[in-house]
Structure formats: C-alpha cells, structure tokens
Nucleic acid binder design. Structure first.
Lengths: 240, 240
DNA sequence: TAGTGGTCTAGACCACGGA
DNA sequence: CCGTGGTCTAGACCACTAA
C-alpha cells in the first residue's frame, strides 16, 4: 500500500506523540505548527498536516484556527464496555430459549419500552449458561408483528440488537443501557438455580431506530457470583 | 475557517452517509471509488478522499487497498459510560471525606491493587450524597508516599484518576473497571443510612500508568435505589 | 502584517487486486 | 493490463489571531 516501510506522516505522528507521552510537551502547551513540522522533516505541509491530524483524531491535540495546535489534557471519563457476543461474558455462553409468548404491555412495561400501554408485545425469555451453570436470565421484548415468525435458530446465535433490527426491518441507530443492582425474586432465583434475595446485576437495553423510535427492550438479570461486568477507559483514541 | 459555508468534502461525506443510512448502499456493498466521487462532484481526487475518510473514521466504510471502499455493518457492541465528574451520577454530588488512614495491604487488597501484600497503602473513605441523602460510599487506595500530603480540598473537587495521577506524578494511561452487584454489609448500610442486605452496585476502578504499573484502586458502593448506571451505544463514531 | 490552521488543486509514484 | 486505495508534492486562497 505505502511506498515505504512506514509512511512519513505516520512517523511524524509517532514522534510528536512520544513528545507528549514523555512530558516534553505538556497539556495546554502549543505544539509545533504545520509549517515547522514540514520544514523539520523536509516534507510538504500537507504531509505534516496528515500526521498531526492523526493526533487530533486520537485526542492528543486540538486545533485553534488562526493560532495553532495545543496539547490536550488526558482524561479517563469514557468507560467502554465490550458488549460483543464473545466478550460480554468473557466466554462462550450456552443460550437456551425458555419461552416465547405474546403479551399486552402494562403501564410498567410500556414505560420501559417508551411506548403505549396496551401494545401487543412479543416476549422471549432465555437463559445463558456457562460451564458452571446458569449465569443470566434474559427477557426480550419486541413489538408484535403478524406473520413475522422468529427463527429459534437465530435466537440462539444472534444478539438482541441484530434480531430486533431484522424483526423491524430497520437500521439500528442507538441503544441505551441501564445497569443496576437488584435482589433476585423467587422466580428469577429458580431460573438461575440459586436463592431468592441474592444480589444480581440487572442490565436493561433499549434499542432505537434512526428516527428515535424505540424498537425493542431487554432486561438481563445476572447472578453476581458468576458475572462481573468489565470495562476499560483510555485517555486517547488509539490511532498512532 | 473554511472558504465556504460548508466544505465540499463535508458535503461529499454527508451525501454518501445519507445513501448508507437510507439503505441505498447496503452493508458489504462497494461504495463509489475516489475517482468516481471526484468526477461526480467535479472536484479533485484528494478532496473526494478527504470526504470519504470521514466516513472511514466514523466506521461507516472500510477500505480494501487495491479494491475499493465497502459499506461496514453497523453494530452496537461498545457500551459507553460517561464517568466524568458531573455525569457519572447525572447530578452534582456532595462529597464528604470521612476518613484518611494508612494501612498495610493484606492479600485481598494486594490482589485487587495488583501489588504485593505488605505494601503500605493510603486509604481514603468518602461518601457521595444527593439531595435525597447518601448514594455511594467510595474507598480509594493509593500507594503511601512519605511527605506527600493529600489536600482535603482537592479530594472534594477532583476525581480519583486526577488525584492518583498527581499523587504519583505520572500520566494515566489506562483504567480498568469491574461492575458488580453486592449485598450491603452492616457497616456499609450504616454509612449509607439504609439496611444491611440491600442490593448495591459495586464499581471498582484500577488505574495504570503507561508502563502498566498499577497506581491506585477504588471501590465505590452505590445504593441501588438511588443510582442506576446509564450508558449508550452507537453503531458509528459520529464525525459527520 | 505575518503566521496559523482549513480547504482545495492537479499532478505524481507506489503496491495491490482482478481480469 | 487497468483500476483501486495509499502516499506525497508544491503550490494556492481563505478566515482568523495577535502583534
């Protein structure tokens, strides 16, 4: 792809990043200008700019038009949780579909789904098991559509957002999560093969299409002794 | 800044993004080539490329050198939790420093902090109150350093990562989170003005410097009736 | 007025992919 | 072989900032 082993603009970015990471350039200080970098490396301004842009995109620098580039202050404010199928639980989980039925939304469910009470809702309940046994009880709710059978096969292997998107034939645009702690009810405890009153993580997910219309809701209850959610935070978006 | 109201490359990106979002271009399909876009808009290839790059950075497209650009499949796999001081709890919290002491790490704490048992540790305990009353009990642990007094003032107003970074005089490079559910102990319940056995969210944070050395650990216990953690997931990084 | 970043051009050469 | 994206150049004009 590149005409060299490593592109010049990439080296520019690396060098400047190193200056920032080692404290030679401190947050708030001005970074070298595009022209200065171009001259220093004997390259064109556009190439220098390309390298600097990497650092801007990565959050290391920000630009002030008419003035220059400044070193950004690092922060760890964004916790990122990998909710992809293979990583959410840290291992492959056995998925068992326990029940599928059609219900009418009461006020509580309607509020959760941001829809009207009385709506006809398709409900699926499944359990997720690790080798140790049951870990989570997942209840998923979708607007009921006549003549749209859900493939059980798909339920086992696709995650909820994909199922919801296919069910509603739209593109997912957003998802909101609520993560809380609860005490297991008798029913939940039974399904999870443990005792009522045990602490559990409750992860609710509400899906939206691009018009902001809610598409589906799920509530996953996880045994706290078998699952701890993990996340990471980095000060910069790693691009260099 | 720009010579126009909106830059051409930006319009290129907007138009192409619209084609993707409305389903005129489906995931897996090939997007127009740089040359085609340049010709279609009557602009130079580099300008077309700049627009397309926005979509690549945003995750809408990916490139296959020698072949072209392809439309990426959306996913909601990354949950993002805003942990900035004002937003972690959704409102300003009253911070009260309850206790500061120096302890010796036992095996449990040493494991959590990824250090050696016997290490001398500075421990701070604080409560976070909303208008309703106590919400969270936060215990923070830092390696003890002689002659490094912590300013109580700072404890109230700075978040833990900043305090840890200043304390150790290094740049933070990473933070790991564990989020679980627990039952409140008698002590915790008393501090949070509630009853033992209540469900609570337990948020542990482990900080690292850029060499991967652990810098500090905190454990925050939150009353589940007063706090639910919220997060969002978007299929694309919003750049256009 | 001089310097900065933001945008844009019209070329160029390269490595790679597929026909 | 041609088309693709990846890199790079040597200019240009603009709006903005600060002296």
């Amino acid at each position: 792809m590149s005409g060299r082993v490593t592109a010049i603009y990439y080296q520019v970015a690396e060098d400047l990043k190193e200056k920032i990471m080692t404290g030679q350039l401190l947050p708030g200080e001005m970074a070298p200008s595009e022209s200065q970098m171009a001259e220093a490396y004997g390259i064109s301004r556009m190439t220098a700019r390309q390298g600097i842009s990497l650092l801007v995109d990565g959050g290391y620098l920000y630009s002030v038009p008419g003035k220059g580039y400044y070193v950004a202050a690092p922060n760890l404010d964004k916790i990122i949780i990998d909710a992809s199928r293979d990583h959410f639980f840290g291992q492959k989980m056995k998925v068992t579909l326990k029940k599928v039925d059609v219900i009418t939304a009461d006020d509580t469910l309607a509020a959760k789904m941001e829809t009207q009470a009385g709506e006809v809702i398709l409900r699926m309940q499944l359990t997720l098991d690790s080798r140790e046994g049951p870990v989570a009880l997942d209840s998923r709710y979708l607007p009921y559509r006549k003549g749209e059978p859900l493939l059980e096969n798909e339920l086992q292997y696709a995650d909820f957002p994909h199922i919801a998107a296919r069910h509603s034939k739209v593109v997912l645009a957003k998802s909101k999560f609520n993560i809380g702690a609860i005490l297991l009810t008798a029913k939940e405890a039974q399904a999870l093969e443990t005792e009522q009153g045990m602490a559990a993580l409750c992860i609710e997910q509400l899906l939206f299409d691009r018009e902001g219309k809610p598409l589906g809701w799920s509530r996953m209850v996880c045994r706290s002794d078998r699952y701890v959610m993990t996340g990471v935070a980095y000060p910069y978006a790693e691009r260099v």
